[in-house]
Nucleic acid binder design. Structure first.
Length: 552
RNA sequence: GCCCUCGUAGCUCAGCGGAUAGAGCAGAAGACUUCUAAUCUUUUGGCCGCAGGUUCGAUUCCUGCCGAGGGCGCCA
């Protein structure tokens, strides 16, 4: 039996108990959270619903729990339901009822774990959004991994998700970028505050190769062409780095398009300002134009157009936000580094000024930065560590996994020595090895004549089997929770748990009989459990963008 | 000064308001003529930064303090 089905049955019993205690205003539905208990002595599933609901019935939690446990104990498929502690109910399923799940998993295949929890939501997830003036570095790496995993998890929960990269290709830094490349081409000293690192020289050589006529042009033309060609090359490099890292974006949004005039002679920024003005949140002071973001909790109002008539970066932010709304995204998720946390209030205020709900339509996930022990700094990019170097050093799987297994707000320092190890202390190998092992077991089993066509879940009576099965049953709940909380790391932690339970089971129960022992129905049945475990590990790794090798 | 995040075992870190706070590593002791030991079994190790508050119940929520990191612009 699947936990969702059991939870629904229990919810009915809770309502019945409540009404038998004379509770008038029964809740429309009771959320029975079935949890996997920490201790195996506590059965397959536990619920604290009695503790939460007893107050409404006006009876002591333990009494309520006792009556409810009796009801649950008589449900089909339930072997035992006990009251423990202050009013927990521990439930043990009959082996056959629990094991039916194995067939369900094999039937659903790669769809097992998907849900409709977020069906109907249109979500825009923006992340990385690096300036196209240099290679991606370690500061972008965590968001690339985490954002991509979040997108996968949200989709798995049924949301309609678009991943988006905001290209900061407008503003003074692009000219500085062009000047830096040009200086390198002409053999001049780099401009003050210009871009450093040998990647500039690389770009300069490539720009010159594509545009050899450039040297004869006027200075202004030279800068413009160095800038535009360099931009095109650098953006292509960034896309390649992300593709190599397994990260795909649905939309590359150019900031320039917000500034450019449309046929009407106004830009998106112009019209956005008018829309904010129409909402009544714009005022003028000291010759500048301001948005009254303090109406929505910002600590100060923000200038949107300077006294000299030039728009601020905030103006582009506003136009970009409205663009997302206009493109049909009900929910906008931003992934930002801790160094951008000062933007939370003003971005939320922006949503409010645009007439939306800052609590609902915009979410900003702030993450702590990553450090790497003993990482070599990149000569190519100056004083930073490049994503490409990290990927080549540690591999896509180890890098993605180790970045995705921690919550975003947890400060993180990676240890390359561990990440390149092939052993238990490297979680990605631990999980991948478990997956490879399920394939090895299946290969051996099939070679010895063990097959999945005989399946009798009531034979799965080993304690390690019960634990493995209930952990497999937990997968859909974990994915849904990861999506709801925007915390993909839960998937990684879950996989480590499944891998551990699988290795333990492998050690205690054989799929292929040893030596000349005969093949029995239990062996056939265990092959299905083995295969179902492989399926769950594969599905989970796919959510993290990590490969699931069949052999290691 | 104001704002944000973090503080859990020796280390790296989990922990949707619930049970005796967990995992891996490190330390100690075991299991390989193996369905791949890249694994498993047993075990040592905690004033959950400190002090209050809310709650039947707080590592979790709130307030203050201490400590670490980051941020404050008519820059982008």
């Amino acid at each position: 039996m699947e936990p969702q089905a059991l939870a629904a049955l229990i919810a009915e019993r809770v309502l019945a108990q409540l009404s038998s205690h004379g509770v008038e205003d029964l809740p429309a539905e009771v959320d029975v959270a079935l949890e996997r208990p920490r201790s195996a002595d506590h059965g397959d599933w536990a619920t604290s619903v009695a503790l939460k609901v007893a107050k409404h019935a006006g009876v002591p939690p333990r009494d309520f729990a006792a009556a409810l446990a009796t009801d649950i104990g008589s449900l089909p498929g339930v072997a035992v339901a006990d009251v423990a502690g202050p009013g927990f109910i521990n439930i043990t399923l009959e082996a056959g009822a629990a094991g039916e799940l194995v067939a369900t998993i094999l039937e659903l295949g790669e769809h097992y774990g998907q849900s409709t929890a977020l069906a109907g939501e249109t979500i825009n997830v923006e992340f990385v959004s690096a300036n196209p003036t240099g290679p991606l570095h370690i500061g972008h790496t965590r968001w690339a991994a985490l954002g991509d995993c979040l997108v996968r998890v949200l989709r798995s929960a049924g949301a309609d998700v678009t991943s988006e990269f905001y290209v900061n290709d407008a503003g003074a830094q692009m000219d500085t970028f062009g000047e830096s490349i040009l200086a390198s081409i002409l053999g001049e000293a780099p401009p003050e505050g210009g871009y450093q690192g040998s990647y500039i020289a690389d770009l300069a050589a490539r720009v010159l190769e594509q545009d050899p006529e450039l040297v004869g042009e006027s200075r202004a033309e030279q800068i413009a062409r160095a800038r535009d060609t360099g931009y095109r090359l650098q953006l292509a490099d960034i896309k390649q780095s992300l593709t190599d890292f397994g990260v795909e974006f649905g939309v590359w949004f150019s900031e320039r398009t917000l500034h450019e005039n449309e046929a009407t002679g106004t830009s998106l920024i112009d019209s956005s300002l008018e829309r904010l003005r129409a909402g009544g949140h714009v005022f003028e002071e000291d010759d500048a134009v301001w948005v009254r973001t303090t109406d929505f909790g910002d600590d100060k109002d923000r200038v949107i157009r300077r006294a000299n008539g030039v728009y601020t970066y905030f103006a582009a932010d506003a136009a970009y936000y409205l663009s997302k709304t206009d493109r049909g995204f009900e929910k906008k998720i931003y992934l930002l580094g801790a160094d951008h946390h000062g933007y939370i209030h003003r971005l939320k205020a922006l949503a409010g000024a645009a007439g939306e709900d800052p609590e609902k339509n915009i979410e900003i996930l702030i993450g702590q930065l990553v450090s790497i022990n003993g990482a070599k700094l990149s000569k190519r990019a100056g004083n930073i560590i490049e994503l490409d170097d990290l990927r080549e050093w540690l591999g896509v799987d180890a890098l993605r996994y180790s970045l995705a297994r921690y919550p975003a707000d947890s400060p993180l320092s990676l240890d390359p020595e561990i990440l390149t190890k092939r052993s238990n202390d490297n979680p990605v190998f631990y999980v991948q090895y478990a997956h490879a092992r399920t394939h090895q077991v299946a290969r051996n089993a099939e070679a010895s004549g063990v097959a999945t066509d005989t399946f009798d879940p009531s034979l799965l009576t080993e304690p390690t089997e019960a634990a493995l099965i209930s952990s497999l049953a937990d997968f859909p709940r974990v994915v849904t929770q990861a999506a709801n909380l925007r915390e993909p790391h839960r998937v990684a932690r879950y996989l480590e748990d499944v891998a551990a339970l699988f290795h333990r089971w492998y050690d205690h129960a054989r799929v292929t009989p040893q030596g000349d022992d005969p093949i029995e129905p239990v062996h056939h049945t265990r092959l299905s459990l083995n295969n179902a475990t492989g399926q769950v590990l594969r599905n989970g790794l796919a959510l993290l963008g990590v490969s699931a090798p069949e052999r290691m």
